[in-house]
């Protein structure tokens, strides 16, 4: 196993508030890495440092570094190129005001893919991976914004997969999705990790347990501990980790 993403003494400040406090950990290639923790513990901020969308928020400051394949993301000249290597799914589903087809084809088009057949194939494949294909295959030309909340959430997932990222970051991807579909997507995530590294932020500790090889537990901006999933759940080093993961607190 080789390290894919490495956080080294990473701190993030929103103004004077420290949202992430000296986090050091690394994520292996082709694994599912779970990040759990109560609200406001810095999980989403951590994801935003990977594709540098944090830069778009005024008043933020980071120290320490995040590197992908050994390269500090700060040193990557073309930030849009970096973002294309990373798929992001955030908890609030946002269908773009375009058709379902164009939603999924958006990123590939921006990256210069215009061949209709290639796009058709890609759109179908991504929608299938997001378990949305069967519901929308007959209405690919309806607006993405008119789909239901759960469908839009899966559309966001399909969109994130469409630029064939090497890293997929999922932030609470399943809050708007029913349990049966969630299980289907989880199965697909397990297949997808053959091709990419998946960072899974979740409030469902059991989901992390089912899927992740390693889990990190964040609390109040700090990384409490991280390690192999089974060890984290059955024999954590800190007492608070065990309490949170087993649902006694949080």
């Amino acid at each position: 196993m080789t390290t894919h993403i490495n956080f080294l003494d990473l701190s993030v400040y929103y103004g004077s508030h420290k949202a992430v406090d000296e986090v050091t950990m690394n994520i292996q290639k082709n694994e599912i890495f779970g990040i759990v923790g109560p609200a406001n513990s810095g999980k989403t901020t951590l994801l935003k440092t990977i594709n540098r969308t944090l830069d778009l928020i005024t008043g933020t400051r980071t120290t320490g570094e995040v590197s992908i394949d050994g390269t500090n993301v700060r040193n990557i000249g073309n930030v849009n190129h970096l973002r294309r290597r990373i798929g992001m799914v955030f908890p609030l589903p946002v269908g773009l005001p375009l058709t379902v087809y164009e939603n999924v084809a958006y990123a590939p088009r921006r990256a210069g893919i215009h061949d209709k057949e290639t796009l058709d194939e890609l759109v179908e494949q991504c929608l299938k991976q997001a378990v949305l294909w069967d519901e929308v295959k007959d209405r690919l030309d309806t607006l993405g914004t008119k789909l239901s909340g759960g469908q839009q959430q899966r559309l966001t997932l399909a969109r994130a997969l469409a630029h064939q990222p090497e890293i997929l970051c999922l932030d609470e991807f399943s809050i708007a999705i029913d349990p049966v579909t969630t299980m289907k997507i989880e199965d697909i995530l397990v297949q997808l990790k053959e091709k990419m590294t998946i960072v899974l932020v979740t409030n469902l500790t059991q989901q992390a347990r089912r899927l992740a090889g390693h889990v990190a537990f964040l609390n109040a901006s700090q990384l409490v501990e991280w390690g192999e999933t089974e060890k984290m759940f059955s024999n954590p080093e800190k007492e608070i980790t065990g309490r949170y993961l087993n649902g006694d607190f949080g």
Partner: peptide, 18 residues
Amino acid sequence: VPMAFRQACWNMGATKWQ
């Protein structure tokens, strides 16, 4: 135009102008 649309595009690596 909701900010969320812009963020979704930026997250996919679209430039500001795109």
